[in-house]
Amino acid sequence: MGVFEILQIIIPSAIFFAAPLIFTALGGVFSERSGVVNIGLEGLMVIGAFTGVVFNLTFADQFGELTPWLALLAAMIIGALFSLLHAVASISFRADQVVSGVAINFLAIGLSLFLVKKIYGKGQTDQIQVGFDKIDIPVLSDIPIIGPLLFENGYIPSYIAIALAFVVWYIIFKTPFGLRLRSVGEHPMAADTMGINVAIMRYIAVMISGALAGIGGAVYATIISRDFSHATISGHGFMALAAMIFGKWHPLGAMGAALFFGFAQSLSIVGQTIPFLKEVPTVYLLIAPYVLTILALTGFIGRADAPKALGTPYIKGKR
């Protein structure tokens, strides 16, 4: 097996595994840039996956080919609404943001399994019938070598995820909204003095993170697992959180880290078919994203600094 064939197995599957992580990690960037820790990404992905699958199973007959897209939309809305709980608890009621995020995770898995058992009478949904189509991107897929590797036979949401990272970068670093968002996360009191409504900015940021994590979960469920059960989302939200930190709270960094983690995941799955990788025990590939995140945080891979006001509720008039 030549190098090219190996790359042709690994790279598309890396992008395939990375897409849900990119969406969710970008959501995390919004929330944490505004100063709200979001450990609840995992739970928000669970809700997104649940909504995506249930919507798909329920409406596949009515909407046909459009179903998975509408399912993404539904997951986005439900994700945003669900994250409102985290926003209310951690912004208005000044709850510990980590604790509130943990509660989101508990609630998401409990509620979605409760509803699955209520609706389908068993602990697991059926397989969805309508998924996303694979496409070749015109023009770009004709480029020799890179074309077949990156732009052939991919799912549209994967490309949307990568494009979205650039959009988010533009929003956060080039627009007034982005500047306000960052100022609220770095120094809320100064932002408040300048007339920015800290609470509203944080509410918006948390809800965007819920929407994106919802999409991330739905993309995972529609493309990779194709059904929903207790184990559908197992740690992907935390991996997205890790990608965001590894990417230093920067949208493009988060995307790069998510692609890398997707690469590690795909290696641990398709690695068995590749000659020299067969010798590497899968456990090393499984723990790689987590070990790398710890190393990144420690400063071995450049220093990562969190937004200054991360994790602290803003109380007006308190120094």
Partner: peptide
């Protein structure tokens, strides 16, 4: 009643304790 009801109750208890400000 599905057993998951208890997980929902536990999650809500955490929410309420965490939001003790309320």
């Amino acid at each position: 009643v599905p057993t998951e009801l208890v997980d929902i109750v536990i999650a809500l208890i955490i929410f309420f304790v965490a939001s003790s400000y309320l």
